[in-house]
Computed example of a mutant assay.
Amino acid sequence: MHMNSAPHLLTEDRPEYERLLDDALRHAHERPELAALGERLNAVQLRTMALAAVALITATAATEYEHYVKTRDEVRAALCDRDAARAPDDPGRPGAGIGAVVTVLAPMLAGTAALIFLLVGYILKMLEPPPEFATTMVGAGWFFAAVTAAAIFVAAVGLLVAALRNGSTSRAARGAGEALLDDVAQAKDAWRQALLERGILPFLRDALAQPAAGPAAPAPYRPAGRLPKIGYSRPDFAGPDDGPAAAPRPTFTSPDFSSPDFGGPEHELD
């Protein structure tokens, strides 16, 4: 897009243009310059004309629209980059995935081993006489129980640290995202205001001000000036007295037929 040319209205922004136009027509009675609405042109006819002239109407706010589209595209790109950076289990960082697996599996494995050793050890101690390795198995069971407690504690601390870090990052990212969205909202409001004040309202006002305007002949909109005269002039038909002199009518003579008494020699009288 170039600043010296009007950017084409994108398909995603067409509904916004129509909403702005409908809102202007809905509140036309509140604007003195649109007080003639309904006398010669109704809201449906004006809407049809404004939709046909959308390219020229939106050209009046080309600078604001270009800024709005540029800001919106930049914010979308920034948000996509942020989401990609926060994607979990990045293939380029295998250590993060291994650490998470160890943190989850260590308490489970240690707890299972502690349960087995303690259960078997105490069952063996109930025998008479108890085996010598029963005490060893009970001691191993308590060792794995201590490992389980330590692993749970480490996992809890890791989760807490990760939550605090992610929370601060999320708040910062959320604050940055809200600031970017505010920029988009401000750019959009500026475009809507310029489009309404410099494009839609002047078009509606000029369409209603044309004395020869008609619903069947919408005129093209020129943003820099007023609308051309809408309508048509009745052709001139000359009356019979004003036309050229009539040419003389042709005359015809009836054929000259001779009577039988004046015929040829074969018809001579005796």
Rank of each mutant, 00 (worst) to 15 (best):
residue 262 F to P: 03
residue 102 V to L: 13
residue 218 P to T: 00
residue 218 P to Q: 01
residue 112 T to D: 09
residue 147 V to I: 07
residue 57 I to P: 03
residue 194 A to T: 07
residue 95 G to E: 15
residue 250 P to Y: 04
residue 237 F to M: 10
residue 118 L to I: 04
residue 63 T to P: 06
residue 194 A to I: 05
residue 179 A to P: 03
residue 180 L to K: 06
residue 176 A to Q: 09
residue 112 T to N: 09
residue 90 D to E: 10
residue 214 G to T: 12
residue 95 G to N: 08
residue 28 A to H: 04
residue 138 V to S: 02
residue 122 Y to L: 06
residue 210 Q to I: 03
residue 186 Q to L: 14
residue 44 V to H: 06
residue 228 P to M: 03
residue 141 G to P: 04
residue 117 F to Y: 04
residue 255 P to Y: 01
residue 83 D to Y: 11
residue 138 V to R: 05
residue 224 A to Q: 08
residue 261 D to V: 10
residue 130 P to Y: 07
residue 253 T to C: 12
residue 122 Y to W: 05
residue 107 P to S: 01
residue 69 V to K: 03
residue 157 V to I: 15
residue 87 A to C: 13
residue 6 A to Y: 01
residue 47 R to M: 03
residue 79 L to T: 08
residue 79 L to K: 04
residue 4 N to Q: 14
residue 250 P to R: 05
residue 108 M to E: 12
residue 74 E to L: 12
residue 154 V to D: 06
residue 86 R to S: 15
residue 262 F to S: 12
residue 79 L to E: 10
residue 181 L to K: 14
residue 221 Y to H: 02
residue 194 A to C: 09
residue 232 Y to R: 11
residue 10 L to S: 14
residue 190 A to W: 02
residue 259 S to C: 14
residue 238 A to E: 08
residue 183 D to S: 13
residue 147 V to N: 00
residue 234 R to W: 03
residue 103 T to R: 07
residue 14 R to G: 12
residue 77 A to T: 08
residue 80 C to S: 15
residue 30 E to S: 14
residue 207 A to G: 01
residue 231 G to A: 02
residue 93 R to G: 11
residue 164 L to H: 10
residue 60 T to A: 13
residue 75 V to G: 00
residue 24 A to R: 00
residue 1 M to Y: 09
residue 197 E to R: 15
residue 26 R to E: 15
residue 194 A to R: 05
residue 142 W to G: 00
residue 23 D to L: 10
residue 55 A to M: 09
residue 229 K to N: 12
residue 192 R to C: 15
residue 74 E to Q: 13
residue 165 R to Q: 13
residue 28 A to K: 02
residue 117 F to E: 04
residue 208 L to G: 02
residue 212 A to T: 13
residue 135 T to W: 07
residue 51 L to W: 05
residue 162 A to F: 08
residue 83 D to W: 10
residue 254 S to M: 10
residue 193 Q to A: 15
residue 98 I to W: 13
residue 231 G to M: 01
residue 185 A to K: 07
residue 173 A to E: 07
residue 19 R to Q: 14
residue 109 L to W: 02
residue 263 G to H: 01
residue 121 G to L: 05
residue 24 A to K: 01
residue 176 A to I: 04
residue 220 P to Q: 06
residue 149 A to V: 05
residue 214 G to A: 15
residue 223 P to S: 04
residue 137 M to A: 05
residue 192 R to S: 15
residue 104 V to Y: 13
residue 169 T to L: 15
residue 172 A to F: 06
